[in-house]
């Protein structure tokens, strides 16, 4: 079990605070509780199976979606509406408590990440951990992200796929 909660890149350990390990059930609870959640999808989701998984999760929970890097293209080809921002641009907005969010309804209170490059996502999560106390972060990647508030554990593809399938159920 311990293996599963050592950050995927072990040297990412930043200090005493570590993410809470979550199952799909807890992750869904967090999403249900959130008033203004946001899904941020990174470039690893340009490929299958993550592309379909992330589209279906977004649809299931009616999440506003931000795509980072050039991930926007494939989503728009799939007729999925997303807002395109650079990773660092969206993080910069998320850390500002005054920002009105992608729907203009107010700053988000839960940001769910999937498909970011591990080390860059880890740095971004650190930004939010330190400078965005107004929101919580949750990662649905295959890797344990210790800088998030809540993260899936390190998993193999098969187990991860099961986790993501569960995210599409109530």
């Amino acid at each position: 079990m311990n293996e599963r909660v050592i950050p995927w890149q072990p040297t990412v350990i930043a200090g005493p605070k570590q993410a809470l390990l979550v199952t799909p059930e807890t992750a869904k609870m967090m999403m249900k509780k959130a008033k203004r959640p946001l899904l941020v999808i990174g470039p690893l989701a340009k490929e299958e199976p993550l592309l379909t998984h992330s589209i279906e999760i977004a649809e299931k929970w009616d999440l506003p979606v931000v795509t980072t890097a050039d991930t926007f293209k494939i989503f728009s080809e799939r007729n999925v509406e997303t807002k395109s921002y650079g990773t660092v641009e969206i993080l910069n907005l998320l850390k500002d408590p005054e920002w009105k969010g992608v729907r203009g309804e107010g700053q988000h209170d839960l940001v769910i990440f999937i498909g970011g490059i591990y080390y860059m996502a880890s740095q971004g999560l650190s930004t939010l951990k330190h400078f965005a106390p107004h929101l919580k972060t949750l990662t649905l990647c295959k890797y344990f992200h210790s800088n998030a508030d809540a993260s899936f554990p390190n998993m193999n593809d098969e187990e991860w796929s099961k986790y993501l399938e569960k995210m599409k159920l109530n």
Partner: peptide, 22 residues
């Protein structure tokens, strides 16, 4: 400046290590 701390801690002097998270 937009910051992404690589580490929550500082270990530059013997008062530390200090955990600077919030």
């Amino acid at each position: 400046p937009f910051y992404s701390p690589f580490c929550d801690m500082c270990c530059l002097c013997t008062y530390g290590k200090c955990d600077l998270l919030n």
